Each structure stands twice: as structure tokens, then as C-alpha cells.
Amino acid sequence: MQDYKWLNEYCLNRFGSAAALEAHLPSPATPRRLEAISNDRYLSTLALRVFRAGLKHSLVDAKWPAFEQVFFGFDPEKVVLMGADHLERLMQDARIIRHLGKLKSVPRNAQLILDIAHEYGSFGHFIAQWPVTDIVGLWRYLAKHGNQLGGLSAPRFLRMVGKDTFIPTYDVVAALNAQNIVEKVPSSQRDQAAVQAAFNEWHEQSGRPMCQLSMMLAYTVNH
């Protein structure tokens, strides 16, 4: 695989200057910021990610105020009490997206947040303290213990709340393939470990956040 020096020079050549490159790169939230996010806002973002999957984001976002209303502001203590009858009634509410599987995921993920908050003090603390050098481990944890958080949903959720993570998008996977790191989307633990190791190496060489390295890597194939 190429080292960070090659990656940086490639991106500098593409954008013409360091300032232009920096303007196109995201910045992760600080641990303090992640800890300050309340459990209800984490649940809202988690649900938003689940409903965005496979749908036009603008369509989902336009309906989100109604979602906030019918899910009690995404207070996990209230949402976790929503039973099957309540969810069936929501299937008749035209203001929201009536997908029963995704609706069921909300109280299930509310339980996830409450369980983690009970153990760690808050969901935000749990997210903040997870090391970025094993961010794929956090993906797997959320996919295993949450609902409808497989595939790219966990890393995209983490990016939405500001947790530093790379995301194996089409362009990133193509770039990883070009460097003989993985051949396809890293769904197995072996492939995820290989990708994590590569990002850890670039992270150590550069000191850059994973989200910036991820985007820089995508720029090497996205013209």
C-alpha cells in the first residue's frame, strides 16, 4: 500500500494547495462534544440513519419533525415502552414513512441506548471513549446489539454524530482495492481488520483524523 506521503501529495496536486484541500475535509467532534449530546438526540440520529437507508434523504428529512412528534422527541425512556399495538397505529399515520420493520427498530434501539447508558453513564460517553484505532469494532458492536445497523448504517451514523470514522463507500473501497488492501466492501472481520490496519498506519504517519483520511482516499479515484 502507498504511504501517507503519497496520499497527501496526490490530494495536493488535485486541489492545488493545502488550503484548498483542507476546505474539503470534515472535522470530527471532540470527545467532550460527543459526551454532551443527549441520549434522545443520539436516538433521533440513529433512527434518522435507519430510515434514510435506501430512501432519498431529503424525503426522510422533510418528514422528520413528524417523527419527532410521534416518537415523543425520541426520549428513550418513553420510546422503549412503545408496544406492537402502538407501532401498528403509527402504520396508519400518513405524516411519517410507514415501514414496519424500521418503525420497530426505534424502540429496540432505544433499549440499546438505555442499556449502554446504564453501564457507561451515557451513550455519548460510550461513543466518545471508543478508540478510533478500532472503529470497526464499534461498527460491529452497534450492528450486533442494535437493530437495522448493519452494512454502512453504523459508520454513517457515527459520521452523522461526529465520531471519527472512515466509511467504506464505493470510492473508498475502489481506492483500497487499487492498493491491494481489500477486493470488495469489507464485511468480514478479516477484511475490516485489514482496512483498519491500513487506516491506523496512515493515521500514525499523519496525525489526521480517520474521517479526513477516508475522504482523501476517495479523492484518489473520484474525478
Rank of each mutant, 00 (worst) to 15 (best):
L81S: 14
M82N: 09
M82L: 12
M82F: 08
G83S: 13
G83D: 15
D85L: 01
D85G: 00
D85C: 00
D85S: 15
H86C: 07
H86Q: 15
H86G: 00
H86K: 12
L87D: 01
L87Q: 05
L87E: 01
L87V: 01
L87C: 03
E88V: 14
E88R: 15
R89I: 00
L90K: 08
M91K: 04
M91H: 01
Q92W: 00
Q92A: 13
Q92P: 00
D93G: 01
D93T: 06
D93S: 01
R95V: 02
R95E: 02
I96S: 04
I96H: 04
I97P: 02
I97D: 07
R98Y: 04
R98M: 07
H99T: 07
L100E: 14
G101I: 03
G101H: 10
G101V: 02
G101L: 05
K102A: 01
L103G: 07
L103D: 05
S105T: 00
S105A: 08
V106R: 13
V106H: 12
V106S: 09
R108S: 08
R108V: 08
N109Y: 02
Q111C: 03
Q111D: 07
I113A: 02
I113G: 03
L114N: 01
D115Q: 04
D115V: 02
I116A: 07
I116E: 12
I116D: 07
I116C: 10
H118L: 11
H118N: 14
E119F: 04
E119C: 05
E119S: 10
E119Y: 06
E119V: 06
Y120W: 15
Y120S: 14
Y120E: 12
Y120P: 00
G121M: 09
G121S: 11
S122D: 11
F123W: 11
G124T: 03
G124Q: 09
H125K: 14
H125G: 15
F126Y: 06
I127E: 06
I127K: 11
A128I: 06
A128Q: 08
Q129L: 13
W130F: 11
P131H: 09
V132W: 00
V132N: 12
D134W: 00
D134N: 14
I135A: 10
I135M: 15
I135C: 13
I135N: 13
V136M: 14
G137V: 05
G137C: 11
G137S: 09
L138N: 08
L138K: 08
L138F: 06
W139D: 10
W139V: 03
W139Y: 15
R140K: 14
R140H: 11
R140N: 13
Y141S: 01
L142A: 05
A143G: 04
K144T: 15
H145W: 12
L149E: 07
G150W: 13
G150A: 11
G150N: 09
G150C: 07
G151L: 07
G151M: 08
L152G: 13
S153D: 11
P155Q: 08
P155W: 06
P155S: 07
P155K: 12
R156I: 14
R159V: 10
M160Y: 14
V161R: 09
